[in-house]
Write a protein that binds this DNA or RNA. Structure first.
Lengths: 249, 249
DNA sequence: TGTCGATGTCAATGCCGTTGACAAGGGTGC
DNA sequence: GCACCCTTGTCAACGGCATTGACATCGACA
């Protein structure tokens, strides 16, 4: 079935305009999900983008969730690819760089389609491309000195942390500008006009806090840095603990 | 205006059944937002819960966003209160316990109303009750040895991390059971049936990973732990750096 | 008593996801 | 070549959603 659809895509059948295919629909949907896409993914908008009836999409995807899941798979695939391109092929000893690049890649590919980030939210897809990447990541942590189980836990923490933060950022960036401004105003009022006598510390750090409000990326990088410091500590502990007994399995 | 509404609330006017007030609406809304509430907050459901016409709510809240913001303020207020009850009144030296309790309290009060967590998502409210709590938190970090600005950055990291993770969990828990099952099945297929030859590490850690899939709370606690280890490192560094110059301001 | 503002009701609007009935068209078997 | 069917696209409709405007009600106050 998949093959037949692809065949149709290659030969435009020379009849109607560009027959709808899974791929062409996903492309159009990704266009709508981009930051410039307008902030909403609906069937009517999708139909307009494709020059076809909105309900035609239902011939290729069971429902919206099905479509969103496919978009999510494309997105994580791109994230994995992004990370692979920036990392050596085999496992490396620089676990910190490895984890940083992985996290930033996931984040970048999601933020290129904020709408997907929001809709995918808590969904998990089982994309095969991702699996090898996970195995590699765990192996890097394991070679760094962490027992296997702990390395796996660490991977899970990193991924959840990254996905949650990314979704958090995407949700805010996809608010209409008026609402965003309202929120920013709330921050400014809250932290900019505090009486120094009652809130000396907040008063002094207000400039930095408002600065951080505008820069989600900076906050994420800081969190990631602190988190990785914690991982470093764990690695040290694991090495010290297993020092007398040699390399643990 | 606020006073008049409250007055009406106290004297039920003895005419119609329980006049609608801001408070009664918020109460009903919170009931709908609880985990048992049905997973959706809509005007029609709210109207039914109140025994009134759905659109009557518009006399008390400009629109849904206004309502959600009010619910959010209640929620963070409860979170702050929860934390305050579990912590000493004045600043303490146990910064780690302080941060842990704060994070867990925020998380707990949001997860008691997952719908609010989802809808509030990236919104920021300027609730005055929260401000004192923030000042205290920064002071705890400062007393632990962090410069003021760094302490503020640390507060920001903790809050964003906690809110993002909480929202992430709430989003998943508010999926309809069928979808949740589908996701869990995806995980099981992905990590349970991996060929040991190709994915030795994933194969060994699969049981732990599936266990973690079911327990968001555990993942959050682990992330928080690792993060706080990173904070500890920063505190140590700050202390070492300022050791020769005495207590920094 | 009459007026006004605040509150509740009702009907209607427009967008959303989704469904079912129907039409067109090409591939397959005769 | 013909009939058939399966896939694909179209159209109209449904129920749910947030929101709005016109109307009714009722208490307060002059």
């Amino acid at each position: 079935m998949e093959a037949r659809v692809a065949e149709q895509a290659e030969r435009p059948t020379s009849k109607r305009r560009a027959a709808l295919t899974r791929e062409s629909i996903l492309e159009a949907a990704l266009r709508l999900c981009s930051p410039e896409g307008g902030g909403q993914l609906t069937f009517s908008r999708l139909g307009k983008e494709l020059g076809a009836d909105p309900t035609a999409v239902y011939r290729h995807f069971r429902d919206k969730d099905d479509l969103v899941l496919a978009l999510t798979e494309l997105t994580v695939a791109e994230g994995v690819e992004l990370a692979r391109a920036a990392l050596p092929d085999g496992p490396s000893d620089d676990w910190r760089a490895w984890l940083t690049v992985t996290a930033e890649s996931i984040r970048a590919s999601y933020l290129a389609r904020p709408v997907v980030a929001i809709l995918a939210a808590a969904r998990t897809t089982a994309s095969p491309a991702e699996t090898r990447s996970v195995e590699l990541l765990i192996s890097v942590l394991h070679r760094a000195g962490l027992p296997v189980i702990e390395a796996a836990e660490c991977y899970r923490q990193l991924v959840d942390l990254t996905l949650a933060m990314t979704q958090y950022t995407a949700a805010f960036s996809s608010l209409d500008p008026a609402t965003q401004a309202k929120d920013e105003a709330a921050w400014a009022v809250k932290y900019g006009m505090l009486p120094e006598a009652e809130f000396p510390l907040l008063h002094r750090s207000a400039p930095r806090l408002t600065e951080l409000f505008r820069d989600d990326g900076e906050v994420f990088r800081m969190i990631l840095g602190t988190f990785l410091d914690g991982v470093a500590l764990r690695i040290d502990r694991a090495r010290d603990g297993s020092a007398g007994a040699g390399r643990s399995a």
